[in-house]
Design a binder for these strands. Structure first.
Ligand SMILES: [Mg+2]
Length: 818
DNA sequence: TCTATTGTTTAGGTGA
DNA sequence: TCACCTAAACAATAGA
């Protein structure tokens, strides 16, 4: 039935001959479940029974009663021994009874009682109250009369903050009147043929009842075996095992709901959830299963195949092996890693008004996960997806629009401190003479600039404006470190890293407060370094940086910072020991030759300004190491080293990355001996290789820049109308009017974030400008890519006595310019 | 040798 | 057309 993964799973309602079930047995079952002493079940049921002294009984002792307080809601008590068929039969029968006017929400309560195992007594009491009365947890049930989705979920508020997703609706788009609730079943037409049961969590289950977990696991090992449903109890246990006190999205709570993330996104989430930004395949499996019970309980085992497929297919996922070659770690290519984590994709809507206007991606039934945030723990914020069939119960607000823009973190090797604040706080104006208040600038200066260019054939490193409008543009290109340090400790730390994968760091409540982030030069270097500074803090990394403010090809300034690697804390360790072992393609099926660390890859130095620069290349280039190529082997195989080989991109840009006949190699002219992928990573539209799980539907334009894309051309000098900033202050005081009206202007907030090894993200110590982080999730890799927004903050310009307003010079800001 | 796991690649389908 | 999903073939590898 489910012919497409995008198609919601719908159980066709069938006429079921409800097997007569011994009422006594049913009652026994229920009673037994009550006497299991699991938290508040008895209380719940008792209360429910009190509210409805005549619960309807269905096969296997399933009882359905009206919710004591919630209209259109019924409580379904599922005895332990009831199987899925029983539940379906009961719901079907109930739905048939009530017809279109019947309750459209059902709260399923399993008789297993294991749900409450983890609940402390106090919490149980609370749960009892909330659940039975229906005011707390039940009250959160979404009851959107306008919702067009066919599924509604009812949360059962658990004692410790957990939410149990248990219910599904029966009648979509129908909000029965209260007086219709108890209508005689036989008297009303039954619309359930189309709708019953969009009960995904049931639908995924096979008809052969509830299999044992063990059996399921055995079969699950065979990836091509159909999934075996788990018992409700097991499911509930797993659900209950989710961390308490955290805010969960429905797919995190429910085994029924498939997470609205692509595999690629989930893999990124998984990998980025670790400090080292790497995971073994098994760890990825585990992480996904832990965070998305759907995959643990419902999804076919073939999802693992898909994971592997994605890992292999997408070039952003790079496999590295331990020094001994026995362990393969999957990492995200530093150029592609935006450090997407699960906690970044949702944020409380009430804390970011901007999000409320953010569009829903019509091309994705699933909400753009990367553009969403979830309510923080305990906030009680229930959200609902923006519009749509994805219809998660909670209100999901897009974090950022799927616009043709994204922020480019700019890493300044400044001795001055950085201060970043939400751009929305920034009274940036379109010109230095604007009304930007000094007071606002006192704390932070933001510059959001630079259109993201789409240029065909662009091949250089600097950003090009998409338009020759009046926008001020700052072009910043920076070399970012991209080395992956490997050493023998990898293996030793494997176990620990395995443990950390299950942490729920991503579930921490988003911090939507401003942070004045400061960093020293050293901190900057460390945090910016792709090497495992945190872990390998004996490394001190400097890197070449190029900072270019362009106007008509005139570089305002550039600097370079020499990057060195030293073994400060571990002198005994030689650099060679820390070489990245990255596989490259090989003839082997388990291909990918071992490659040298990125840090030692040939440096590609782009011209500071080049009309043909796409900016996209810069996006890569500034992330590259600038070491001299001390590994000729890597040089010789520059073509082969392109890790990005998404077929589409390859087809379009002929990236010489393929090791297969279907992926032509070497069709792209070598660009000055540099790694071609760094300079020719444009598809026909000039987009970046797609590292992003976020997709922007063609034609989507949320910023005014889009329309000016066609203004770009190779014949036009970049930043034709871009003023040249004489000073940082001027730069900071200037802002494109478009930006002020853009969707980003009010959103960014700061949140502590580990940013190492993340591209397009400005790590500042352990803190990262939230705006940058969020900006990273924007997909700029597709056709609609139109803009790059620079988010630059200069902290301390006002605090520092050395700086005197507009008198601040670049040389002051950048010591290298002196 | 067998099996399981892991990794790569191709192919086909679906929805927007 | 594209992104994404799913399935599958195939191979390398590790371990029993
Ligand atoms: Mg890959």
């Amino acid at each position: 039935m489910r012919t497409s993964p995008r198609r919601p799973l719908i159980l066709k309602r069938r006429k079921l001959s409800l097997p007569a079930e011994d009422a006594a047995a049913s009652q026994r079952a229920v009673t037994k479940s009550e006497t299991d002493g699991r938290c508040d079940r008895a209380s719940i049921e008792q209360h429910a029974i009190d509210a409805d002294s005549d619960p309807q009984k269905f096969p296997a002792g399933i009882k359905i009663i009206n919710h004591p307080s919630m209209p259109n809601t019924q409580v379904v008590f599922v005895p332990k021994h009831a199987n899925v068929q029983n539940i379906i039969a009961a719901l079907t029968a109930k739905g048939k009874e009530c017809g279109s006017t019947g309750p459209n929400k059902f709260i399923l309560i399993s008789g297993g009682g294991s749900l409450r195992q983890a609940c402390p007594p106090g919490a149980q009491e609370q749960a009892d109250t909330e659940t039975s009365i229906g005011g707390g947890g039940f009250g959160k049930a979404v009851n959107d009369s306008n919702m067009c989705v066919s599924r509604k979920l009812v949360d059962v508020k658990m004692g410790d903050g957990m939410l149990l997703h248990t219910a599904a609706n029966i009648t979509p788009n129908h909000k029965p009147k209260p007086e219709e609730e108890n209508s005689t079943p036989a008297l009303t037409p039954c619309p359930l043929d189309e709708s019953l049961t969009n009960i995904q969590w049931l639908g995924k289950m096979s008809s052969d009842g509830l299999g044992s977990c063990t059996m399921r696991q055995e079969l699950e090992d065979k990836e091509n075996q159909p999934p075996v449903p788990q018992s409700l109890k097991q499911v509930e246990e797993d659900v209950g095992s989710l961390p308490c006190g955290s805010s969960f999205t429905s797919w995190q709570e429910s085994i029924a709901e498939r997470p609205p993330y692509s595999y690629m996104a989930m893999i990124q989430f998984a990998i980025n959830s670790t400090d080292r930004k790497r995971m073994t395949l098994k760890e990825i499996y585990t992480w996904i299963e832990d965070h998305f019970p759907y995959f643990k309980h419902v999804a076919k085992p073939g999802w693992k195949n898909s994971i592997r497929h994605n890992l292999s297919l997408h070039d952003m996922f790079v496999r590295e092996t331990s020094a001994n070659g026995k362990i393969s770690f999957w990492t995200i290519h530093p150029d592609a890693n935006r450090c997407l984590t699960l906690d970044q994709v949702f944020k409380p809507m009430d804390q970011n008004p901007l999000l409320q206007v953010l569009p829903y991606d019509p091309q994705q039934k699933r909400i753009l996960p990367e553009l969403q945030k979830c309510a923080p723990a305990g906030s009680g914020v229930k959200s609902e997806s923006l519009g749509t069939s994805s219809s998660t119960e909670r209100k999901m607000k897009l974090l950022l629009p799927r616009v043709n823009s994204y922020f480019v973190p700019v890493h300044f090797p400044l001795s001055q401190q950085f201060l970043q604040q939400p751009s929305g706080k920034m009274p940036l104006s379109s010109s230095p003479s604007s009304s930007a208040s000094t007071a606002d600038l006192t704390k932070s200066k933001h510059v959001q600039i630079v259109p993201k260019p789409i240029l065909q054939g662009a091949s250089t490193s600097t950003y090009l404006p998409l338009e020759s409008t009046k926008e001020n543009a700052v072009v910043v290109s920076e070399e970012a470190p991209s080395a992956v340090v490997k050493d023998e400790e990898e293996d030793a730390s494997l176990l620990s890293s395995l443990k950390e994968n299950t942490s729920y760091t991503s579930l921490k409540p988003p911090a939507w407060r401003k942070h004045d982030v400061q960093m020293s030069t050293l901190e900057s270097s460390q945090s910016l370094s792709y090497v495992s500074v945190k872990e390998e803090n004996h490394l001190t990394a400097k890197r070449d940086c190029q900072f270019t403010v362009l106007r008509d090809d005139v570089p305002l300034s550039t600097w370079k910072e020499e990057r060195t690697l030293t073994a400060a804390k571990s002198p005994a360790r030689k650099l060679s020991d820390m070489q990245v072992i990255r596989r490259r393609k090989s003839s082997s099926r388990r291909k990918q030759h071992l490659v040298i660390p990125c840090a030692e890859e040939p440096l590609l130095v782009f011209p500071d300004c080049n009309n043909s620069d796409s900016g996209l290349v810069s996006d890569f280039s500034f992330l590259q190491e600038t070491h001299a190529p001390d590994h000729p082997t890597d040089l010789s195989s520059a073509q082969d080293t392109c890790p990005f080989k998404t077929p589409i991109k390859e087809k379009l840009i002929k990236l010489p990355v393929s090791s297969t006949p279907s992926k032509p190699v070497g069709t792209t002219p070598q660009a000055s001996g540099s790694e071609p992928w760094r300079v020719t990573s444009l598809n026909k539209e000039g987009s970046l290789p797609d590292f992003s799980p976020v997709r922007l539907p063609p034609g989507t334009t949320l910023t005014p820049f889009k329309d000016s894309l066609d203004l770009l051309g190779f014949s036009s000098p970049p930043f034709h109308d871009v003023p040249l900033f004489e000073s940082p202050q001027q730069l900071l005081n200037s802002k494109s009017p478009d930006m002020t009206s853009g969707p980003f202007t009010s959103s960014p907030t700061l949140e502590p974030h580990s940013a190492k090894r993340c591209s397009k993200e400005l790590p500042i110590g352990n803190l990262t400008n939230r705006s940058l982080t969020e900006g990273l999730v924007l997909d700029t890799m597709n056709d609609s890519l139109s803009k790059i927004l620079l988010d630059i903050s200069f902290t301390g310009l006002d605090e520092d006595d050395r700086f005197d307003g507009d008198n601040v010079s670049w040389s002051q800001l950048i010591p290298e310019l002196r």
